[in-house]
């Protein structure tokens, strides 16, 4: 907790902390850099954990409760490490009207997990998005950052099967 005004030391030798520190420095360690910094943490580490939140909160002199409140308010931030592969199904209206619900069911069945979860072998995570703005090619699914449009159940099954060799 920020009982002193000194900047806290980096949590570990991990070089990614310097990237995080860089974002904060660029914003002059201003409190309003909290969300920007959390984005950097998530980009660098894939998720936020309490070590990171404490480090960022202490550096920016944001109360811990506020930092945690912010991190959990915005659904883009995740507190769990993602799997090796991430399948993100868009549930926007256009996709929903064109069968995104069925795709989600297929993906849940194929991976044996619910949306928001990661397989036990940490191979794959299944996520949903509110709308990724690819409505013109609905239904859309993002596989490891790459958007695929007009997705049919078959494409989805093939792609997921490729991630988890039986």
């Amino acid at each position: 907790m920020p009982l002193t005004s000194k900047k806290p030391p980096l949590p570990s030798e991990d070089k990614r902390w310097r990237i995080v520190n860089g974002t904060m420095r660029r914003h002059g360690y201003a409190r309003d850099a909290l969300i920007e910094t959390l984005h950097t943490v998530q980009e660098s580490f894939g998720f936020l954990d309490k070590v990171a939140l404490r480090f960022v909160a202490d550096s920016l002199r944001v109360p811990l409760s506020q930092a945690y409140g912010v991190a959990t308010f915005y659904h883009f931030f995740t507190m769990k490490p993602p799997g090796e592969h991430v399948c993100l199904i868009c549930m926007g209206t256009a996709c929903y009207i064109k069968g995104a619900g069925a795709l989600l069911n297929e993906a849940q069945a194929a991976l044996g997990i619910q949306a928001g979860e990661t397989t036990a072998d940490a191979k794959a995570s299944l996520m949903t998005a509110r709308c990724i703005g690819s409505c013109s090619v609905a239904p859309a699914v993002v596989f490891d950052g790459e958007t695929m449009g007009n997705v049919a159940g078959k494409n989805l099954r093939e792609k997921l099967a490729g991630w988890r060799p039986a």
Binding site: P63, L64, S65, G69
Partner: peptide, 9 residues
Amino acid sequence: AHTWGVFGR
């Protein structure tokens, strides 16, 4: 003290 905060939404 800023101990209390609100989680999630």
